[in-house]
Amino acid sequence: MTLAFLAIAFVTVAAAAVAMALRNLIHSALLLVFNWAGIAAFYLWAGAEFVAFSQLMVYVGAVSMVVLFAVLLTQRSPQSFREQPDSISRVIGALLVGGAVLGVLFGAVLSSRLAPSAATATPTISVKELGSLLMGPHAAALLIVGVILTVTLIGAVIIASTDHAESGKDES
């Protein structure tokens, strides 16, 4: 049980770390997709089936496609998917900040006395219960998420679309 968790955690974090360090954008994106799938595996391990499949569907199915399309559309020449290296000072600064945050978080988690669960049976939530939760107490939030998604869809299309007046100029 714990072994499975450790394996998932290690693979997921390693995939994320390698993805963030790679020069090749496509490889980074694909490794991140793998990382998202690993997080879905963690949800499965924790017993949240519905969330795991949603994660898989939204991230591996949809977000990955958007990311890959964006990578391909923003390359000058199709052959150069390698980025120029980042400046060393930036990387060192980021590593320092990240390391500090990591230290603070690890210290906090390890030193805090978290109330252990009553060691009862694993909590399970069926799709039906989840549905009534979403439609009952959280109905307002559900509606708002629907509005956000609609607005986002329209907004994304408008932002990314070419205006015809300008497109002629761009191609010159």
Binding site: V13, M20, L95, V97, F106
Partner: peptide, 21 residues
């Protein structure tokens, strides 16, 4: 619970380092 929290904070920091660097 602590293991899961460590896992998530490691992931968070990897994301942070990536976003900053």
């Amino acid at each position: 619970l602590q293991l899961c929290l460590l896992f998530s904070s490691a992931l968070f920091c990897v994301g942070l380092i990536g976003a900053l660097s």
